[in-house]
């Protein structure tokens, strides 16, 4: 008892400091590093470019293509209404945000953007960039948000081949590539086919372009696989658009609960 008491007298301050340090680190972890993200946003603010810079880069050709896409979309919408299909949900844009940081670790593929809950960015929103889908928002602070890229191995997205409607899902490969796994044994696919998100993706709205098929491995088991070149140049992307989206089901729920939801 006495030795314990003497040890405590000698080391109380040190033990207290150690506990304080670990408790602080734990607290920061539980709050998803809100304080650090906010400080980072504040410090890098002078170096962040403004949206006007991007508009200057957009040349007339892109504008022309956009006009034509809008025209085609409108025609498509009209035709869809004629054949009485469900209205395709058109993407609304919450905001444009600058990418202010990359992943704080080499194993996760994430980016940090300079807009947060104050600009109505919320968890589950999706991010697109020039070229197509970028990822989805996984955590927010008042002025920053963290986006899980679709190149992260933990991103799995239901997709389809735009030409043939063959469905499958893609999984990131930590680079500008992803693996597409088909659901069927003999999918209609060839190199160069465009991949878009499919309607049964729970986390993403349908028909957002993702990339192109580069090679096909028909020997893979249990179903063929294809290597997909992502169309967004993620490593030198500077801007993303955030679109509001609510996942169709609670992805954080336990699997059993999702099953009961399906049954009901």
């Amino acid at each position: 008892m006495f030795t314990l008491r003497r040890w405590w007298d000698k080391n109380a301050l040190k033990a207290g400091l150690i506990l304080l340090a670990i408790a602080t680190a734990w607290g920061v972890r539980q709050t998803n590093g809100v304080f650090i993200s906010e400080t980072y946003q504040l410090l890098t603010r002078p170096f962040q470019s403004q949206p006007s810079a991007k508009e200057q880069v957009e040349n007339a050709y892109v504008l022309e293509l956009q006009q034509r896409v809008i025209e085609l979309e409108n025609q498509n919408q009209g035709l869809r209404e004629l054949v009485d299909e469900n209205k395709s949900s058109k993407l609304q844009t919450t905001t444009m945000a600058a990418i202010i940081g990359r992943s704080a670790d080499n194993w996760w593929q994430q980016i940090t953007i300079g807009k947060g809950t104050q600009a109505k960015v919320k968890v589950g929103d999706i991010a697109t960039g020039s070229g197509g889908l970028v990822g989805r928002v996984i955590s927010t602070t008042p002025h920053t948000a963290r986006i899980l890229l679709l190149s992260d191995p933990s991103s799995q997205i239901g997709v389809k081949i735009s030409r043939s409607r063959s469905a499958g899902y893609i999984q990131g490969q930590s680079g500008e590539r992803a693996t597409l796994k088909f659901f069927e044994k003999d999918p209609d696919v060839k190199p160069g086919d465009v991949i878009v998100t499919s309607s049964f993706s729970r986390l993403f709205p349908q028909d957002i372009p993702i990339g192109r098929v580069s090679t096909i491995n028909s020997d893979a088991s249990p179903a063929p696989e294809a290597l997909v070149q992502l169309s967004v140049p993620i490593s030198n992307l500077e801007w993303v658009s955030i679109h509001p989206f609510t996942p169709k089901q609670d992805v954080d729920a336990a699997p059993a609960k999702i099953v009961t939801d399906d049954v009901l």
Binding site: A25, I36, S37, A104
Partner: peptide, 21 residues
Amino acid sequence: AIAGLTLGLLQDSLTAPAPTH
């Protein structure tokens, strides 16, 4: 070890909690 634990938890806060740093 204590420094490693503290900084590891901090790095988790910036990325993902599992697997931990």
